[in-house]
Design a protein around this nucleic acid. Structure first.
Lengths: 207, 207
DNA sequence: CGTCTATTTGAATGTACTCAAAAGCGGTGG
DNA sequence: CCACCGCTTTTGAGTACATTCAAATAGACG
């Protein structure tokens, strides 16, 4: 994890916190008491492009809410190839879930594809918040349900669709990501090589 | 959904409910007041082998906790091939998450691989329980976190490992399932054809 | 037993990968 | 402002992993 640096876009934590609270309010109702507790537990962090937020083999102590920029979590296999688990742009959470919930060394890396600002919450503070504010627990319960449903969809598509259709679904589902992320990254999310993605695109263009 | 039939093993709801409460107690502490509310919301259901609990295109109103037997959820692609999302034996929950949380028609089928007894909770009752008993919300939040983490692992392995290693991981991780489920089912979970799984097994046996 | 389904086997095929190299593109420094 | 460097994307030829199709064998169940 890099040294926190205050980015220009978010000169103070209040401005940053407002983004998180707005996201939470879209799912639940928060009392002013809860707001204060949430903000008190939040940590502002800036991650320069290509730098890491979490390294494999280490404990992912924090869950990260993206304020601006773009992060990705990925797994490096025994041959050195990277496989993307998740991208996260503004308004998304990202973490190495396995490491975060168990607070044990994880298998994933999380780095910044763009200069990124994050709002962090430690697992410790999160568990405390859950007990203090059932509403916060409700918020994450809702987020987890949605994540699980969309991951089920990803698994289904990985099992049942050829690469071309997985790519078409991706650009349709995440149009904002398509123009922001390199093809290498998209290929590693889809489970194909960059070379093959290039061939798929040529095929699709010729129609 | 089939007509409820009381199985021999669970002559009454109390016996069945005790199994669910035991599972919950392994994750949280429940008050006697909460216990009553949980049991009041639970519905006992028996599903004969090969019969369906949920059909694609319909709303998955209930989430199911397996008391005995084995269920699977799967997706049928445009060529008629089935792709298993999840198996659930004793002490596991199963549902078409996308349909269940939105209460909209789903894409999955859920059927019984063995004669199975379930304890159901409707989405409506579950949401009510969440508001009445924060502890119940905590229980499902914990379950969702674990599910998400293990699904992340499955995605990683599907992306990074060849079929032989995915199979070896499967039989190591779910030894109880391996002897209980046909190879057709295992193949459809791993994302390969039954024929190819048979060839993998021959390869592995010849060592 | 006989029937139905699951599993195995083999040959031909296809989808996606590997390796190698060229072309494009963006940033940086002289 | 141009030239160079590094990284991304494209392209092609050869290869490998997994599928398809067809058929034989083995198991399970009434």
């Amino acid at each position: 994890m890099t040294k926190p640096r205050l980015p220009k876009k978010f000169p103070n934590k209040e401005t940053a916190g407002a983004l998180l609270l707005a996201n939470m309010r879209r799912n639940i109702k928060i009392s002013t008491k809860d707001e204060k507790l949430i903000l008190a537990a939040s940590i502002l962090l800036s991650v320069p492009k290509k730098e890491f937020f979490h390294h494999e083999g280490q404990v992912n102590e924090y869950s990260a809410f993206v304020l601006s920029g773009c992060m990705r979590s990925y797994f490096t296999d025994t041959n050195g190839f990277e496989h993307t688990v998740q991208f996260a742009v503004e308004d998304w959470w990202i973490t190495d879930m396995m490491s975060y919930i168990k607070q044990e060394p994880g298998k994933l890396n999380i780095d910044a594809l763009e200069p990124t600002t994050l709002l962090l919450i430690s697992r410790r503070d999160q568990l405390q918040l859950y007990d203090q504010c059932p509403t916060v627990e409700k918020y994450f319960r809702i987020l987890l349900e949605k994540s699980l449903a969309s991951q089920q969809l990803r698994i289904i598509e990985n099992l049942s669709l050829p690469a071309t259709e997985r790519y078409l679904n991706f650009i349709q589902r995440y149009p904002q990501l398509t123009n922001r992320i390199s093809q290498i990254q998209i290929a590693s999310y889809l489970g194909i090589t960059p070379e093959f993605l290039s061939k798929i695109r040529r095929q699709l263009a010729g129609k």
